[in-house]
Design a protein around this nucleic acid. Structure first.
Lengths: 138, 138
DNA sequence: TTAAAATGTTAGCATTATAAAACATTTTAA
DNA sequence: TTAAAATGTTTTATAATGCTAACATTTTAA
């Protein structure tokens, strides 16, 4: 059940999800522009993603995500948000760089590490809340 | 001055450095075995690394790192150690997985994030020291 | 409504990473 | 010391990604 997608293909899904959220629709041109690649490269990626059941793409038409594709896109976005938050808010890495690093790491971080990081960031947030107002409990 | 190496080539340098540390020498066979690739793949990588001045490799002979190659290998090892320490000791990720994740992240983490992480891990260590014996100062 | 502009697609090439198979050299052990 | 085993190298092939250039379709605006 654990089909792995390449970093590149994951990025295509993420970009399509973003465009749908922002513009309601995703077109080849938008995808290529956002990702800094050529339309031809987008087309080839879409063919692969279509074949594997992640996107729906009619010739000369819009690009859409299947449920399966949306799930992957959401998963990656969740990872990106968490990683960005950790890098920027916890470590204090500058926005631009934190985002760039998060966008790379989101493809490699394991589920285990992700879970631990979620827990850790949660604890840090609580600590900050406490420190910025009240005394430590107990 | 900032020639970038691919993740793959960085891994070859890291492996060669490891083998030299453990066995004094590095051979094609050892590299392929450690990395789970074929001798032919190692050879091709070594040709590239030779041309670019990172390794010295005489036909049918041992493999060695140039100063330039050793610097890269050390740099990556430093990153791996820090990332592993953070994942395992701070987040509590299981050894195997922490190592696997660190080995991927070591190739993508930016210098900025690295620096912030070093500082952060340092602070955490101090906190742990304090908490496990003394009261908080101030 | 039609010609130009915009957008999308296909074909062919380049790069990177790896493997398989054939071949070459070196090492080992009988 | 020499034949087999181990190791190293080259050649050829495959897969993933992206590019350019040529071509096709759709949209726009005169």
């Amino acid at each position: 059940m654990k089909e792995k997608l390449s970093e590149s293909l994951e990025n295509y899904l993420e970009t399509i999800a973003f465009l749908k959220r922002e513009n309601k629709i995703a077109r080849v041109k938008d995808i290529s522009k956002m990702m800094g690649v050529k339309n031809s490269s987008v087309n080839i990626a879409l063919n692969v993603l279509s074949e594997r059941g992640y996107v729906i793409h009619e010739r000369y038409g819009y690009v859409d995500l299947t449920d399966k594709g949306q799930i992957i896109a959401d998963d990656i976005q969740k990872k990106e948000d968490l990683l960005f938050s950790f890098l920027h808010n916890v470590l204090g890495v500058e926005k631009e760089i934190a985002l760039k690093d998060a966008c790379k790491m989101e493809h490699t971080i394991s589920d285990e590490t992700l879970a631990k990081l979620i827990y850790f960031v949660g604890r840090i947030d609580k600590m900050n809340l406490k420190e910025s107002g009240k005394r430590k409990n107990k």
